[in-house]
Each structure stands twice: as structure tokens, then as C-alpha cells.
């Protein structure tokens, strides 16, 4: 599904990603964990194609094709979905109008017939229940005046409607109370299909109690310093990022300390 090789990326001239290697197979759930500022969100934004992030080296293959040469909308049309850490407010555009336009753009690109207003409403009715999103929010401008939890639910609601092949969840758990976390994760789990993959970017282990990963990667200072099974997340919870780093090689320990100083 996704193969990242020696990926380097900068933002405003500052190198954030310093050689990432990662492979996510069809049907797998991978978690990227790491301290603040380690590059987790940068990786998510690079995969979605944010223009502020410049790839300076390396390559990303998605379904065997070069992802980096595609515009953000082309990536979305081919099944990549980024659930934003900070969903953007869009005054003047209603949530349902926006989502219908998005869904039809994706369907059109995939050679499917566009949905009319009635079919779209039918589809949306089921999906709002999945994340317990109040229906009234459909008619409000996108994310405007939504609470933090509502914004995150709205992201997962969009995910449910767009049914991507590769979902990237960027700190979807941040700012959620335990009930909202459960609702959001259950939503994600119900959307899992054998043909789809999920990349979960998170600071904390608790989300992974609900969305159980096949693989956990620890990202420190722009590099993956350890990869392992879901137990690695528990180890992290216990020892902290410094503890994990100490067991690795020297550069990793330095990197972690450097990071600690920055924080």
C-alpha cells in the first residue's frame, strides 16, 4: 500500500524528517509514536501533500506509484485521507455542501457516478450515527464554532463518507475526553476493511488500546528509532521516550536528549 524510502523533508528551510523508511501493507494498521516535535505531524502532512513541506530526498510509493508527484487532491482522489490534527474552519461553506463536493470529486475521479442530493443525504444519515455527530452540524459552516471534540468527530465522519484506502490519523486523540475517544476509535474500527490500511500518528498509547496496531514505530528527531509489535507501545508508556531511546544506539539517545532540551 505505502512504501516510504529515506524520506527527508524541510519546512521553512529547517530539516524535520531525516531519512524515514516505512512500509505499510494492505490491511495493516501502523502507529507512529514520538515526542512533540519529532516529525510525526510533518510526516502526515507530507503524505497529504501540504505545500509548506518540501521533500528534499527520498521517495514515497503509494500503490506502487510515485506519490510525491501528485497534487493533494489527486492523492485524496486515489484514496488517501488525512484526519487533521487541527481541522480548518471554513466560514460560509456548509459542512454537507463541502462533503458532497468532496465525495463527488473523489467518485468522479474513480469513474463512479456522482451522487445527487437525495442519495447523498441517505448516505450521510448512516454515517453521522457512526461517530454520534449531531445532525445539526451538517448544516453549519465547516468546523466553524465546533468544539474540539466535534471537530475531531467531523474528521472521522468525513473519513466514513469518503471511505479511503489509506487513512492517516494525525493526533486524532488529542483534546478528546475518554468517551469521545471511544466513539472516535469505534468509528475508525468499524470502517476497517481487509483492503484498507491505517496510519495512526499519536503521542499517547491510550488510542492504541482502541485502535490496535499491527506495528508500532517510534519517531525521534526525524528518524524511526525503533519498530516493533503493539507491545512496544506499552513499553513506551512505561519507560517514556527517553527510556526507549537509551536502549538504542548513541545517535538515538542524543537525538532524544536533543529533543528533550527543545521541549
Amino acid at each position: 500500500m505505502l512504501e516510504i524510502r529515506d524520506l527527508h523533508a524541510t519546512v521553512e528551510g529547517k530539516e524535520i524528517l531525516r531519512g524515514i523508511d516505512l512500509a505499510v501493507k494492505v490491511g495493516e494498521v501502523h502507529a507512529i509514536m514520538g515526542p512533540n516535535g519529532s516529525g510525526k505531524s510533518t510526516l502526515a502532512q507530507v503524505l497529504a501533500g501540504h505545500p509548506a513541506y518540501v521533500v528534499t530526498k527520498g521517495e514515497v510509493l503509494y500503490q506502487g506509484k510515485n506519490l510525491l508527484e501528485l497534487q493533494p487532491e489527486e492523492r485524496a482522489q486515489r484514496g488517501i485521507f488525512l484526519a487533521f490534527q487541527y481541522p480548518v474552519e471554513i466560514p460560509g461553506v456548509s459542512n454537507s455542501y463541502f462533503l458532497k463536493a468532496a465525495l463527488n470529486a473523489v467518485r468522479k475521479a474513480q469513474g463512479l457516478e456522482e451522487l445527487d442530493a437525495i442519495d447523498f443525504l441517505e448516505l450521510v444519515k448512516d454515517k453521522v450515527k457512526l461517530v454520534e455527530l449531531p445532525e445539526a452540524l451538517l448544516h453549519r459552516p465547516v468546523n466553524e464554532g465546533f468544539s474540539g471534540g466535534e471537530k475531531k468527530r467531523n474528521e472521522i465522519f468525513q473519513l466514513a463518507v469518503l471511505e479511503p484506502r489509506l487513512a492517516i490519523l494525525d493526533e486524532t486523540d488529542s483534546g478528546l475526553d475518554i468517551d469521545a475517544l471511544r466513539i472516535v476509535s469505534q468509528g475508525v474500527n468499524r470502517l476497517r476493511r481487509p483492503g484498507n490500511s491505517v496510519l495512526v500518528v499519536t503521542h499517547y498509547q491510550r488510542l492504541l488500546n482502541y485502535i490496535v496496531p499491527d506495528c508500532v514505530h517510534v519517531l525521534v528527531n526525524g528518524r524511526i528509532v525503533r519498530s516493533g509489535s503493539k507491545e512496544l507501545a506499552l513499553e513506551l508508556e512505561e519507560k517514556g521516550y527517553d527510556g526507549i531511546a537509551d536502549e538504542g544506539d548513541e545517535t538515538v539517545a542524543e537525538a532524544a536528549q536533543g529533543e528533550a532540551r527543545v521541549v
Partner: peptide
């Protein structure tokens, strides 16, 4: 970018905004 990331082409996204 948010609209683009949902599959809406850039010129359409700009038109919508």
C-alpha cells in the same frame, strides 16, 4: 489545502472559498 486534501481540485476549492 483542507479542501484539496478532501479531493476538491485547487481551482474549484478557490472558487468555493
Amino acid at each position: 489545502f483542507y479542501l484539496q486534501a478532501r479531493g476538491i481540485a485547487r481551482p474549484d476549492a478557490r472558487g468555493m472559498l
